[in-house]
């Protein structure tokens, strides 16, 4: 799958929850879109990622 424009060799079929764990990202600090579709927090466990999925993740850092 492609994450933020870069090809990765993460296993297909993993959930977004698992993806976030592998990327060490906090589910409460991100916005994630798969194939231009916004994924809401309550779908992170159920949405499974396929081979050619385009994933965009924005991970917010503090400050303002």
């Amino acid at each position: 799958m492609i994450i933020n424009g870069e090809k990765t060799d993460l296993p297909t079929g993993i959930s977004i929850t698992e993806l976030l764990r592998q990327l060490n990202l906090d589910r409460d600090k991100i916005v994630i879109e798969v194939n231009c579709e916004l994924i809401s927090k309550d779908q992170y466990a159920s949405v499974l990622l396929k081979q050619d999925d385009q994933v965009e993740i924005i991970s917010f850092v503090g400050g303002g």
């Binding site: 409460d28 600090k29 916005v31 917010f60 303002g64």
Partner: peptide, 15 residues
Amino acid sequence: DSPECKANLVNTILS
């Protein structure tokens, strides 16, 4: 200021 509040607002507005 807080990253959780930032993500929450953006997720809510977009959805």
